[in-house]
Each structure stands twice: as structure tokens, then as C-alpha cells.
Design a protein around this nucleic acid. Structure first.
Lengths: 214, 214
DNA sequence: GCATGCTTGTTACTAGCGGTAACCCTAGTT
DNA sequence: AACTAGGGTTACCGCTAGTAACAAGCATGC
């Protein structure tokens, strides 16, 4: 009895939690990352204290929300990374998957990148530095393990793979951010340019006449 | 007379402005990006409305503050980029300059990257997207022009240079952010690893036995 | 001499935020 | 009937960004 009761309650609580997260999702999608707890509660048809009972504080809610989307994005990225194709094709496909995702839902993506936590809450309420961009960190680590697993990099390969993982993810992120704002070219062109960069075209390019070279 | 008067006033206002910015700087350095206007005003020995008369709103103050540091950092980066050495050396020196800067003053750097603008001000008070990371954008554009000026990239070189500029800056930023948090290796090692990445070692590396290759 | 404006500064306020304490009410158990 | 357990609300706290409204210092114009 006791167990079934607890299961029932837990299932009910989980359902409620999912509903609340979906409501929060809608509000963030509409208002951006600075969505207020009041607005989210109103969207869910309830009032603030319930939100706080479920998620502790705003950081908790945002973390839960971020985890959802981050997991989803990481799944599709993993799929692209694991496709049966040669290395260049995989890299391009992964880049394209990421860019397609941020293109489809820029609000969500901005929320994930700039959680804007630690507003005017308690002075030391949040370590902004450590939580600033969990998605980027997770993607970087993920990519690092893939690189380290599959590539033969000689001694110090683990360090190298991690540096590269975070570096490549940062490249993807910054270029995507800029591209999303200005749309200077098609997605395919962007993907090709970035892959070219990773393939060493910067180092291989010739100097322009005259100068001492870049 | 009129002109000299206006000049006097302007000079006085400029001096005041600089004093205020220096006070703001101290507070941001101490409290991080979520420093309150009250705290800044107190540090400057005055009260809030004066800050607002000088800078309009918090975004204005932060923009002015960011411009200062951004200009300074960009100057040193330009110097590294223009040093008389070959391409690889220049790239490494630029990376090292950036990393040394963020290592020396992480608070300032976090402030520049995550301005945390658009708090609970007016709902459409700020386009978070457009202002999210002005330093990254400016560095990206700067690097793009250098690349485009000095490298022979064939047709479409301008687009390519811009993509690369923003991509490389993003790589530098994300890797630096991660490195600053975990300190997994020395600065020199990080610089070498990133330069290796840009020099195409990712594409050139061999597969590990067995798998279909990354 | 004196009113006029301009800059610099203040106090005192508004509206909204994150977060919480206290209470209310309904269901089920004994 | 009494009692407890959750889900829910109202009403509040302390804080924030931002804004009147008012008070001095100081040049100018009549």
C-alpha cells in the first residue's frame, strides 16, 4: 500500500512538474530569458509559491528547463556525430545540425547560452561564473570524448582532445551567434567555411602580395 | 567666450564621467557584473540620479564601461597581431595575449562577455540578442579584416574571412573560459593546442584502430 | 541689485522583481 | 468526529532600476 501510494504521489508530482516546465517553456519562448516567475506561474494557471515548492528557486527552474533542451540538442548532435560517413562529412553534418537547431528556435537557444541567472536576488545568491553556460560546457566535453575515443593523437591526447572539444564548440557557437544576427550567407556556406577552417585552410592559405604575411 | 565656456563645461563633465567610470570599474571588479547602481553611486561618493544623468540607464553605463576595456584589450591584441613574425607565431602570440588578459582579471572579462543587460527593465527595453556580447563581435570583425587584408583566399574571401574571424574568436573565448575555470594545463600548452587545431591537426590526425573514423 | 537660467546634487518615491511566511481548504485515514 | 498531508492562495519583505521634485552654487542679463 505504502509503496503504491508513494508511486501515485510521485507520478502525480512528476506530471505536475512536466506541466509547469511546459508552461515555463512557452513563456521563455515568448518573453526571452528574463521571463519572470510571476509570468510563468500565471501561464501555468497557478501562483508563485508552487513554482518555488517544485524548483526551489529561479535557478532551479531554469536549470531544469535548460537540462531538457540541452539533452534534446545533445541527442541530435550525437546522432550526427555517429552517422556512417567519413570524418569531414560528420563534422559538417554536426555543424549543420547545431545551426539548424539555433535557427529554428533562437529564443530557446539564447536562453540556453545566456541564462541570465543571479539577477537582483541575494547578493551571493548564485555563482554566475560557474553556471554561465552549461550547454557550451556539456557540448565541449561531449565532443572531447568523441575526439579522444576515435582519433589517434599521440601523447597528451586527452588534454588535446578537451581543448579541441571546447574550442570547436566555441567556434561553432560564436559563428552561429553572429550568423544568426546578420545572416550574411546560407547555412550550407557557413558550414563549409567552418569545416574549411578546421581543415587547416587558414594555415595553408598564401600571403597577399607585399606584406610580411599574417 | 561661448566656445571656451562650453569647452570648460565639457571638460569638467568628461572628467566627472571618467571618475564615475573608474568607480564603477572598482565595484564591478569587486562585485561582478550584477553590481547595483546604488553600490556604484556609493563608491563614487554620490547618489543614483547623477549616474542616470550621465549614462541614461544601466545599459548605458555598462556599455561605456565595456567600451573602455574592450578598446584596451583590442589594442593589445592588435599589437600582437601586427608583430614582426611569421603567421604561426603571430597567432600564438595573439592567443596568449588574450588568455593572459582574461587570466589577469577574470571579473572584468566575465563582465565583458556576459553583460547581463536587459534585467527587469521595460519589457522591450533592450534587445538582448543584439547587445549580448559586443566584445566578441568586435574582436571577430577585427580579426576578419586582418585576415581579409593579409591572406589570399580566392573568390568569396570576404565572407570566408568574416566567418573565420568570428569562429576563431569564439574558439579562443570558449577554450579560455573553460581553461580559466578548470586550469587543466598551462597557458602555453593551451595556446599550442589551439594553434595546432587551427593548423589542421584535427583533419590530419589518424583514426584509432577499428572504428570507421571520426 | 536681482531675477534667470544651468549644472550638480539631494530626498523620496514608484513599480516590479525574487523569495517566503502564514494561512485555507479539501481529501483520506483512523 | 478528529486529525493529518498536500495543493493552493494572500500578503508581505527586501531589494532593484528608474524617476520626479526640490535645493543649492554660480554665471549671466537687465
Amino acid at each position: 500500500m505504502d509503496t503504491t501510494q508513494r508511486t501515485d504521489q510521485q507520478r502525480s508530482a512528476d506530471r505536475r512538474r512536466r506541466e509547469l516546465l511546459e508552461a515555463a517553456d512557452r513563456v521563455v519562448l515568448r518573453d526571452g530569458p528574463q521571463a519572470s516567475m510571476n509570468a510563468i506561474a500565471a501561464e501555468a494557471g497557478i501562483t508563485k509559491p508552487i513554482l518555488y515548492r517544485h524548483f526551489g528557486d529561479k535557478g532551479g527552474l531554469y536549470a531544469a528547463l535548460a537540462k531538457r533542451h540541452t539533452d534534446a540538442l545533445l541527442d541530435s548532435l550525437r546522432a550526427a556525430l555517429d552517422a556512417p560517413a567519413d570524418r569531414r562529412e560528420r563534422v559538417e553534418s554536426t555543424l549543420d545540425t547545431y545551426l539548424a537547431a539555433i535557427e529554428a528556435r533562437p529564443q530557446v537557444y539564447r536562453f540556453l547560452m545566456h541564462p541570465a541567472e543571479g539577477g537582483q536576488a541575494g547578493d551571493q545568491g548564485f555563482d554566475v561564473g560557474k553556471h554561465s553556460a552549461p550547454l557550451l560546457r556539456r557540448m565541449g566535453e561531449e565532443l572531447a570524448t568523441v575526439i579522444e575515443e576515435r582519433l589517434d593523437l599521440g601523447p597528451g591526447s586527452q588534454q588535446l582532445a578537451r581543448v579541441w572539444g571546447h574550442g570547436i564548440v566555441g567556434m561553432m557557437h560564436a559563428a552561429g551567434d553572429w550568423w544568426l544576427g546578420e545572416r550574411p550567407c546560407s547555412r550550407a556556406e557557413l558550414v563549409r567555411s567552418l569545416a574549411d577552417l578546421l581543415w587547416g585552410r587558414l594555415a595553408a592559405a598564401g600571403d597577399k602580395m607585399g606584406g610580411p604575411g599574417f
